Simulated scan of single mutants.
Amino acid sequence: MLIDLHTHTTASDGTYTPQELYQKANEKGLEVLSITDHDTIDGLLTLKSQLPGLDYRISFTESCPSNLESRTSDLNSQLSSLESRNSIFEFLPGVEISAEFPKTLHILGYGFNLDDNKLSKTLKELQEYRLNRNKLMIEKMNAFGFNITMNELLEISGGEVIGRPHFARLLLNKGYVNSIQEAFDKYLKKGAKFYLDKKRLSPGEAIELIINAGGIA
C-alpha cells in the first residue's frame, strides 16, 4: 500500500499544481495522498473544485472523536481499512504550519475540518503576511539594482503563492545568478542579503489550531 502524507503544490512551494500532483500520484499507484502545503489549504480546495467526483476524504468531520488519542486511533483504522478496498484514491486533509521555538519548526496537521473558520482565518493571515514580505523583498532587490517586479514573479509562479524558489528562478532567468543554488546562497537563504523572515505561530498555537479544527498534529 503506497501512501504519501507530506506533499506540496504550487499553492505554496511545490513544483506541481494540485491537479498535476493528483495525476502523478495516480501514475505512481498511490492509494492515499495528503497535500500539506505551507500555511495554506488552498491546494486541496482547488483540487476538490477541479475534481468534484472525489467526494470521499479521510477525516473526522462527520463524527469527530473528542480526544486526540481517539482521533489517532480513528485515523489508523481508516488507513488500515483501505488495504482491503479496491478504491483508487483517498484524501487526508493536511497542512504544514510554520512555527517558531526558538528556531523554525514545521507542524504537520491531518484530518481537520476544511470548513473550520478559525483555521481558515489564521492561514489567510499568514498568507497575507507572506505577500507583504514578498513586496518588501522586491523593494530590497530594486534598491540593490536588480530589476524585479511582482508581475514577473506572478508569471513564474503561475499565479500561485509566491515563495523564495520563484525569486530564485527569476534571478536566474535575468542573469543575476548562475544557478538556483547561488541565488539562495548569496541572496535568499536565512541571513542572506534579501532574506526576510515570515510570521510564524508558536508550536502551541499551531497545534491548538489543528486540534480545535478536529484534526491531529
Rank of each mutant, 00 (worst) to 15 (best):
E182S: 04
Q181R: 13
K193I: 01
V177R: 03
R169Q: 13
G158A: 06
G175V: 07
Y187K: 04
R164I: 02
K193C: 00
L154S: 02
E160C: 09
H166Y: 12
I162D: 01
A192V: 13
I148W: 14
Q181F: 12
E155G: 09
I148F: 08
I162V: 10
D197K: 07
I180K: 14
A192E: 09
K190M: 07
L188S: 05
S157E: 07
Y176N: 03
G163T: 15
L171N: 11
D197N: 02
G159Y: 07
Y195P: 11
Y187T: 01
Y187E: 00
Y176I: 06
A183E: 00
G159M: 01
Q181S: 05
A192T: 13
Y195H: 06
A192R: 15
G158Q: 07
L188G: 02
L170A: 00
V161R: 12
G163K: 15
F184Q: 02
L172K: 08
L153W: 14
S157L: 10
M150P: 12
N151T: 14
K174D: 01
L153G: 06
R164Y: 06
S157H: 13
H166T: 08
R164S: 03
L196W: 09
E160T: 01
F184T: 07
L196K: 03
L172V: 02
K174P: 02
G175K: 13
A183I: 05
G191P: 13
Y176H: 09
G163Y: 15
G159N: 03
P165D: 03
R164V: 01
T149A: 08
L154P: 00
I162L: 12
M150F: 13
G158H: 04
G159L: 06
I162M: 10
F167A: 02
T149N: 12
M150Y: 13
G163I: 15
V177S: 01
L172G: 02
V161E: 10
Q181V: 07
P165W: 04
G163Q: 14
K190W: 01
I180H: 14
E155R: 13
E160Y: 11
E155L: 09
G175C: 12
E182H: 05
R169H: 14
K186D: 00
K186M: 01
E155P: 05
I148V: 11
G175P: 10
Y187V: 02
K189C: 12
L196I: 04
L153A: 08
G158E: 03
R164L: 07
V161M: 11
I156A: 04
N151S: 14
K193V: 02
N178M: 12
I148H: 11
I162T: 04
F194Q: 10
D185F: 12
M150W: 14
I180N: 11
I148N: 03
I180F: 15
I148E: 01
H166A: 06
F184G: 03
P165S: 09
G175M: 09
Y176A: 01
A168F: 10
Y176L: 03
V177W: 11
N173D: 08
N178E: 05
E152M: 00
F184S: 12
K189N: 10
L153K: 11
Y187L: 02
K189Y: 06
H166V: 10
N178I: 14
